[in-house]
């Protein structure tokens, strides 16, 4: 479960000798996604979608309000517990965030190794997953040797390899053609059916239409529309 209760986020920015300026990035955002739920996160560029996702994977902390991730109060988490919670969250970043010095295989294997899975299991799962995303012939390639779409597929494979309880994706299909995008959606809906909570930020209206799920619409740092409330009547 993911629950936001009156969440706000401010950035403080100093401008030369002038007083510190406080920028409202998010204001009074409240919603709830049950465990196993699926939400599209939509909104114009700069509306606050990426920031909302950052709050969900604990890369940012709210200035106000309360966030509950997978049933845990994020504000009260000790550092170690926060790290362990992050292992249960799979994230696809807009800029992929792959480790440039590691091969495609090692990038995908990383979450499993962090979870101290056996190398036999790592090999089996990673090889199968990279095969599934069409990169079985490029296991040893470094990210710089791959195209944007291929890097994105590695990023997706890394996010799902540990069978996360919460899957977050920021424009995961931005560099994929329709066929690859549909394959990705099959993977994500498959994860979702197995109980993973999914939030996907996207501008891709075709995907939103083809894979119906409640939308969370962000506009100017506020939650403009929670379609789940409409669906629930």
């Amino acid at each position: 479960m993911v629950r936001f209760d009156d969440v706000g986020l401010k950035y403080r920015r100093a401008q030369g000798k002038s007083p510190v300026e406080s920028l409202d990035i998010l204001r009074s955002v409240s919603f709830e996604i049950p465990q196993g739920g699926f939400r599209w996160l939509t909104g114009a560029s700069g509306a606050g979608k990426t920031t909302l996702l950052k709050l969900m994977y604990l890369a940012a902390h709210p200035s106000q309000g309360k966030i509950e991730i997978l049933g845990v109060d994020a504000a009260k988490l000790p550092v170690r517990e926060a790290a362990l919670l992050r292992r249960r969250i799979g994230v696809v970043f807009q800029d992929f965030r792959l480790l440039g010095h590691l091969s495609a295989y090692d990038n995908v294997a990383l979450p499993m190794r962090l979870a101290r899975r056996s190398e036999a299991q790592v090999k089996s799962d990673v090889t199968e997953l990279l095969h599934w995303v069409g990169l079985s012939g490029k296991l040893d390639r470094k990210p710089a040797e791959l195209s944007g779409g291929e890097q994105q597929r590695i990023s997706i494979a890394r996010a799902v390899v540990n069978r996360p309880k919460l899957f977050l994706a920021d424009e995961p299909t931005g560099n994929l053609d329709d066929l690859q995008a549909d394959r990705l959606m099959m993977l994500i809906t498959g994860l979702n059916k197995m109980g993973t909570t999914v939030v996907v930020a996207t501008h891709n209206q075709r995907l939103v239409k083809d894979y119906p799920a409640p939308r969370l619409e962000i506009a100017h740092g506020t939650l403009a529309f929670d379609e789940a409330l409409v669906w629930a009547g």
């Binding site: 550092v79 170690r80 790290a83 292992r87 965030r97 480790l99």
Partner: peptide, 9 residues
């Protein structure tokens, strides 16, 4: 990146 994936400090 590693920290974000849940590596302990």
């Amino acid at each position: 990146i590693i920290h974000g994936l849940g590596t302990l400090d």
